[in-house]
Amino acid sequence: MAYNVVVMGVSGVGKTTVARLLAERVGLPYAEADDFHPPANIAKMSAGTPLDDADRQPWLEAIGAWLQQQNVAGVGGVVTCSALKRRYRDTLRAACPDIWFLHLAGAHDLVADRIGHRTGHFMPASLLDSQYSTLEPLAADEQGAVLDVGPTPDQLVDAAVRLLTAS
């Protein structure tokens, strides 16, 4: 079956790792949301300035278009996207209505520690607080699940596959 999955959450929760493993496990194409950002967004975040909704809109529309293309082709896909606000998820759903969201959630201190130890990423730890304050958890009417990021990535993927195939 073709699934359309968005692995969401604040920076540093392991979206990329889990999404890649999940895509591999269920045999779906994978896309990294960071690859959809225009250079101006990356420059803004690299400078420690949070994106505003106007910055995010074309990025969200591009991710939604990728999901829609995968859906129309009948193959589905797994993509990372912070998707912190309901309206951001609504933008993605407008392009591909049957999205299943996997919200990776973790304690602020754990996630801050992870960000502090990673290299080669443009998102500075200084923006983590703004992400947590922006985060709107999945509502009861949104298709998906929340997993705590304490377990290993393989354990998270095992849980995600169980939840996804049961939905």
Rank of each mutant, 00 (worst) to 15 (best):
A43V: 05
A43G: 03
R162F: 10
A105E: 09
R89Y: 04
L22K: 09
T49D: 13
A105V: 06
G14C: 15
A140R: 01
I42Q: 02
A43D: 03
A83Q: 14
L127H: 06
D52A: 08
T16N: 08
G76P: 01
L51V: 11
P39A: 13
L67C: 11
P124A: 10
W59E: 05
E61M: 13
Q57I: 12
A47M: 04
W59V: 05
L104C: 13
P153E: 09
A105H: 12
E61C: 11
R25F: 11
A139E: 15
S126F: 04
Y88E: 00
A94Q: 11
V111S: 07
L51C: 15
A40P: 01
R25C: 09
R118C: 12
V157M: 07
P29H: 03
V146D: 04
A62V: 08
G106W: 11
Y88G: 05
A95I: 05
I99C: 09
T16A: 08
D98W: 07
V13R: 05
L102E: 03
G48A: 08
A83E: 10
A159H: 14
F36M: 02
S167I: 00
L28K: 11
S133G: 02
Q68A: 15
A47G: 10
Y132M: 04
L147H: 09
V7G: 02
L21E: 15
G76S: 01
A145F: 10
V5A: 13
D141R: 13
A23R: 09
A54P: 00
D158L: 14
G150N: 06
I115Y: 01
I63Y: 01
A166I: 07
G76F: 01
A83G: 14
A94G: 11
A65Q: 14
V146I: 14
Y88L: 02
A159D: 15
F122N: 02
L22Q: 08
C96R: 00
Q155V: 06
V18M: 14
A73G: 00
L92A: 08
P50A: 00
L156W: 06
G150Q: 06
L102T: 02
A159S: 15
S167H: 00
S130I: 04
A65H: 08
A31Y: 01
D98N: 13
G106F: 10
H37K: 13
L21S: 12
G106T: 07
W100S: 05
A2V: 06
G48R: 07
G150E: 03
P58S: 15
V13N: 09
S46I: 05
D35R: 10
S82A: 12
T119D: 00
V79L: 00
V6S: 01
I99R: 03
L28H: 15
D129H: 04
D141I: 14
V6E: 03
A19R: 06
L104Q: 06
D141S: 14
V6C: 08
T91E: 09
R56P: 08
G74A: 07
Q70W: 03
G14H: 13
S130R: 00
E142V: 13
A112G: 15
V72A: 12
V6W: 04
A160K: 03
T91K: 09
V7R: 09
N4W: 01
M45I: 14
D141P: 12
Y132G: 10
A40Q: 05
M123C: 12
P38T: 14
Y88S: 06
G27M: 09
